[in-house]
Design a protein around this nucleic acid. Sequence first.
DNA 1: AATAAAAATAGGAATTGTTCCTAATTTTAG
DNA 2: CTAAAATTAGGAACAATTCCTATTTTTATT
Lengths: 133, 133
Amino acid sequence: MKNFSRQRKLIVSILQNSFEHPTAEEIFYLARQKEKNISLGTVYRNLDMLSKENVIEKISTPIGKVKYDLKKDKHYHAICKLCGEIFDFYSNINLEKLQNDIKKQTKLETFCEELSVLGICEKCQKGEKNENN
Amino acid sequence: MKNFSRQRKLIVSILQNSFEHPTAEEIFYLARQKEKNISLGTVYRNLDMLSKENVIEKISTPIGKVKYDLKKDKHYHAICKLCGEIFDFYSNINLEKLQNDIKKQTKLETFCEELSVLGICEKCQKGEKNENN
DNA sequence: AATAAAAATAGGAATTGTTCCTAATTTTAG
DNA sequence: CTAAAATTAGGAACAATTCCTATTTTTATT
């Protein structure tokens, strides 16, 4: 963090203070408030690097939007297939069993505990429309 | 299926005969072999409808590619964060507990058993590069 | 079988999200 | 203090997806 660039620190702090899971575009917009010349390319590049360094999680939603989440506490994501909203949830399920199943059956050796489950959220079940569908 | 259009039947049959998880573009390419004038828009529209009807599963990978899978047998997906490859796996983990955790904590009421876990595949761990990274 | 209404399609234009490029700036190491 | 390495801003380029419209196909009704 010490040797993070000003821009990168800003991006991390935006994620720290965000309860939702902002998109790159939203992070860019918020960043502009403090760093008036920051470019969208910089936002993307840093999000990419932070995600590869496992500081943040990149979440691809079923409606195409990509969202970002700071990896603070260990939690999982339930995502609505129709509007793409992400709901955090906690669970003490035994992931070891799942991890073993995966290890035995696939070539995916490292298990990142990035797990998501799809569903339909309350609003979408009621047929409420929003900006995403 | 009976009242599916010729084009839609073709798309389903392509997914039926595909071991991998093809992208819309790949499905389009394969479809063209049999239906020389099928358009990409038709492929997208049908994939969307089939996915909403729960006939197929739309899988968003961490590298941006969107892939499709026919819902035949119940299985889950382990996806490589770096190359986006999808590995099917089976598990008899008790999803009921997970489902309960989700139900209690989120507004996501319907649980679709579409679950994916991210990781790093063998090849990517070895640092092998491929067309996607 | 004829016809009107509804649904689906082909083809391509438009839009959106993301990556890539380059010159300039900032940081790091010696 | 200086040279090399890394990062940035800004914008062009690219790729995936959606949208639009005229045409074709299907369905339902008689």
